[in-house]
Write a protein that binds this DNA or RNA. Structure first.
Lengths: 208, 208
DNA sequence: TAGATTGTTAATCGATTAACAATC
DNA sequence: TAGATTGTTAATCGATTAACAATC
């Protein structure tokens, strides 16, 4: 396995995947780089370059078979099996994540929630059982959870992410506004909402 | 006003700003590019390059005065006045945004909520009055709202963003998983949570 | 002055774009 | 075959890194 893709390329490939997924549902079997570019907002040259990632996929004179593109990108995205996800922090953000319709659609299954509030522990929300945060290390391996969503206040984020790591998760999506420290074998992605607002501010100020 | 900064530079500058803000609170008056790099996870050369954005700020042999850096970056981020923000969609995600403690801390003030559910309209949540979505165009100009948070289901996102645009907002932070079309004078930033999960998946698969 | 650290220039690196021969 | 569109190469563009003279 080669690790050669840039984050920019990966983002575009994800968008191509979403696009061909829809096209397949609509029954379209073939698409040109020009059309795919138009639908995703990139350029045809960029699309062709990106799609050679895994060898030549297209048919000169025709375009790309949508099902071939889908198959190859499924591999990139690790969609051969469902992703089992644990949610830590069942406040408003946690509930929003739990009810987020797209997660399930894209193969991410939240199979356990964790919170420290006694009023939440022991109940199911939308079919997802809520455990005490102290059970993270016990429950995650049992349920074969491989990704964790950290939706707790900043001061608790490191602590729960340490627990997730001890529980063997491979990746953490962190919503708390702190820089988590994780060992090198654990993958981390951050969503910092106030950074997004600051970026928008910069756009409004005209610096971008 | 020159528009010369790349998105990457802006992101780093935001992190420098957060860092010097903390340092000032701790009473530190000066910082070297090396220390700032260490604290933010970038390189000293990168830090120095970024900080020349607005002319020479540092003192050779000493480093950067924290208050000077703060002042200059405040300008970049448009922090001379509070940002008034309207929230459309007061579901779980909306509530999470409404209660997000960092927004207020960083000068973003949610001053109105909008929803279509009658049970929510007319009540205040954490001091924020919830209006009917049909009132967006009337209320936003009155309250001088300049940014909109779109936290509604995908199918309604374009409709409410159109209303926000007619109401004169300058920027939209969109949480719905659709590509919104906005006129060129309106700035748009997207937060797509399932894309973030896909990126994390790619990391786990070893492509990044 | 000596020591430290900046700002800047040049070199490197990587990503995007353009063009076109290859090919279905 | 003629027409269309790919895959690839070379050119361009921009961002990062390294090195060091300038300077406090």
């Amino acid at each position: 396995m080669q690790r050669k893709l840039s984050i920019g390329t990966v983002e575009r490939l994800i968008h191509y995947y979403r696009c061909v997924e829809e096209l397949i549902i609509e029954g379209q079997t073939c698409i040109s780089s020009e059309e795919l570019a138009e639908k995703t907002g990139y350029t045809p040259a960029q699309v062709r370059k990106d799609l050679t990632w895994h060898g030549a996929l297209g048919v000169p004179g025709k375009g790309y078979a949508t099902d071939v593109v889908q198959q190859v990108l499924r591999k990139l995205l690790g969609k051969h099996r469902p992703r089992l996800v644990g949610l830590v922090g069942v406040g408003h953000l946690g509930l929003a994540l739990l009810r987020h319709p797209d997660f399930h659609k894209h193969g991410f299954h939240i199979v356990a929630g964790f919170d420290k509030e006694l009023t939440k522990i022991g109940h199911s929300i939308d079919g997802v059982y809520i455990y005490d945060v102290s059970q993270i290390e016990k429950v995650c391996p049992l349920l074969k959870i491989e990704m964790g969503l950290v939706a707790v206040p900043p001061l608790e984020a490191q602590k729960v992410s340490d627990a997730l790591i001890r529980a063997g998760v491979l990746g953490i999506l962190n919503f708390a506004a702190v820089r988590l420290s994780v060992p090198s074998h654990v993958h981390l992605e951050n969503v910092d909402l106030s950074i997004e607002l600051e970026k928008l501010s910069c756009r409004i100020e005209g610096w971008l």
